[in-house]
Simulated scan of single mutants.
Amino acid sequence: MKKHLIETGMAVLMLLCFYILSREAAETAGKLVDVSGNIKEEKVILVDAGHGGVDSGMVGVDGLKEKGINLEVSLKLKKVLEKRGYTVAMTREKDKGLYEENTKNMKAQDLQNRIALMKEYKPLLSVSIHQNSYSDPAVKGPQVFFYEDSEQGKKLALAIQKKMNQQLEIKSPRIAKGNRTYYLLKRSECVINIVECGFLTNPDEAGLLQKDDYQQKVALAIADGIEEYLESGKKEKN
């Protein structure tokens, strides 16, 4: 009798384990997204807030530092994407660079660590948030860069550039631009864009980029561009 009870208990336990594993598998399958033929484990998007810590990035009008604007836009983009059901990985969420203190090659280590995170997370795509500068203070407008040999990178850039030009009501819209020299574009194994949200050397645009509501508009435009790219990828696959 005792032996029969033990065998029955073991059978029930095995069935329970099978049920739990089956549910986990179903939930995981529900998270899978097929973009351009590549199955990813989750809907992960990597948001890279450029610079940080002692690396302020470019300095614009009235000493405005790029690193802070990058972080504010990146955190807003994270919230927008998460509300839409994506898992968002961040390269930084504080005013801190991705390098060890007192390192001799701070910039090189920072960029290498950003690439390492892209390899670790294997995201659907990555966007690196930056601000632009130019010697002529009249120059302004967002611009998106992609690796010139990446067809998917170009498609993503065209979608984000279009949404930013439209939603930020840019009077003289810029075009997405291919590049073969930027380290992140060259070294990334995932689809990646560098998004220059505006020119901190232009007084009007620098003023806008410091405002919370404009930063939110920038984040929404980038998110809409990302979704348009992902949707077009699913349509092509079907």
Rank of each mutant, 00 (worst) to 15 (best):
E72W: 01
D55N: 15
E120G: 06
K78E: 15
S56C: 09
A108K: 13
V88D: 00
G52A: 12
D213V: 03
Q210W: 01
Q131Y: 02
Y121R: 12
I160L: 03
K96M: 10
K217A: 13
V59F: 10
G30H: 14
I226Q: 02
R187P: 00
R84Q: 13
V35G: 03
I170F: 11
N179G: 08
F146A: 04
G97I: 05
S150E: 05
H130G: 04
E24P: 00
E189M: 04
A49G: 10
D136M: 08
L125I: 06
T181V: 06
H130L: 06
C197E: 11
E236Q: 14
S133Y: 14
E24A: 10
D55W: 11
K154L: 06
V47S: 05
N105S: 06
I129P: 00
Q161A: 02
L16Q: 13
E231S: 09
K79V: 01
M90F: 08
K237T: 08
E24C: 09
S135Q: 13
I194C: 02
S56F: 10
V218Q: 05
L75N: 09
Y147W: 12
M1R: 12
A49C: 08
Y183Q: 07
I129W: 05
Q112C: 04
D213T: 08
V218R: 02
S172H: 14
P142L: 06
I192P: 00
S133W: 11
I226E: 04
L15M: 15
E66C: 09
K140F: 11
Y134G: 11
P142M: 09
I226Y: 08
S56E: 11
C197Q: 07
I6A: 05
Y121E: 13
C190F: 00
C190L: 00
S36F: 13
L15H: 10
G9A: 13
L124P: 00
G141V: 03
Y214L: 01
K79D: 15
L64H: 07
K76H: 04
G178M: 08
D95G: 06
L158H: 10
Y229A: 00
Y121T: 11
